[in-house]
Simulated assay, not measured.
Amino acid sequence: MVKALNCPNCAATFNTKDSVCEYCGSYIITSESKQNNYSLNEFKPTYKKIFFHQIEMWEDERPIRSGVANLYYSATRSDGGQLLLTNKRLIFCAHALNINPNLYWEINISDVDRTEMGLNLLISQRVNIYNKKNLKAVFVVYGGKRWISEIDNVLR
């Protein structure tokens, strides 16, 4: 795990064990845990910006859940990284160990048509996300039922 990085807002050295940049006050989500839920109480009005990896949240956007995930293409191909659900978007960022480490995927919540559980693989599960054109993205995550529940709550 990375011990330090630069703040995406002000470029100051940022310790990944912290959640707020001591120089500019930005909140930076860097968790590598299997899954995290966020409380709106975590994001105080003093935080100037909120970042997930290098991605800046919109002004009225708040993180709800994040965790490790694989963007699944086939039985022999997937990209690993982090998945983030906010009140506005679902965002996937690949980690640096992939062949394509700059992979980025997102969908606005308003463009999600439906979600459903896919194949259960012991402790990990596939979550299918369909857009309004019936195109499907598949993620392998821990706690798939919880992901579906959280996404469906945001859709309502």
Rank of each mutant, 00 (worst) to 15 (best):
I28C: 08
I28P: 04
I29R: 03
I29D: 01
I29S: 06
I29A: 05
T30N: 12
T30R: 06
T30V: 13
T30C: 13
T30S: 12
E32H: 10
S33T: 12
S33M: 15
S33F: 05
S33R: 15
S33I: 11
Q35R: 10
Q35G: 06
N36L: 10
N36Q: 15
N36S: 10
N37Y: 12
N37I: 07
Y38M: 06
Y38A: 06
Y38T: 05
S39F: 11
S39T: 06
N41S: 14
N41Q: 11
N41R: 07
E42W: 01
E42G: 05
E42F: 06
F43T: 03
K44D: 09
P45F: 11
P45K: 14
T46K: 11
T46R: 15
Y47L: 15
Y47Q: 06
K48R: 09
K48E: 14
K49T: 12
K49G: 07
K49W: 10
I50C: 10
I50A: 05
I50S: 08
F51W: 04
F51G: 00
F51H: 02
F51D: 03
F52D: 03
F52Y: 08
Q54S: 15
Q54L: 12
Q54T: 15
Q54E: 14
Q54F: 13
I55N: 07
I55R: 07
I55T: 15
E56D: 11
E56W: 01
M57D: 02
M57N: 03
W58L: 15
W58Y: 14
E59I: 07
E59N: 09
E59Q: 10
E59P: 02
D60G: 07
E61M: 10
R62K: 15
R62M: 10
P63I: 01
P63S: 04
I64S: 00
I64C: 00
R65G: 08
S66P: 08
S66F: 05
G67L: 00
G67K: 03
G67N: 03
V68R: 00
V68D: 08
V68N: 11
V68E: 04
A69Q: 03
A69H: 05
A69N: 02
N70I: 01
N70W: 02
L71W: 07
L71N: 05
L71P: 03
L71I: 04
L71A: 04
L71Q: 00
Y72S: 01
Y72P: 02
Y72E: 12
Y73T: 07
Y73M: 09
S74E: 03
S74L: 08
A75M: 13
A75N: 11
T76Q: 14
T76E: 13
T76Y: 12
T76N: 14
T76P: 09
T76W: 13
R77H: 13
R77I: 06
R77S: 08
R77W: 13
R77M: 11
S78A: 14
S78L: 09
D79T: 02
D79M: 00
G81N: 02
G81D: 02
G81H: 01
Q82S: 07
Q82E: 09
Q82G: 00
L83T: 00
L83F: 04
L84V: 00
L84G: 03
L84N: 03
L84K: 05
L85D: 04
T86M: 06
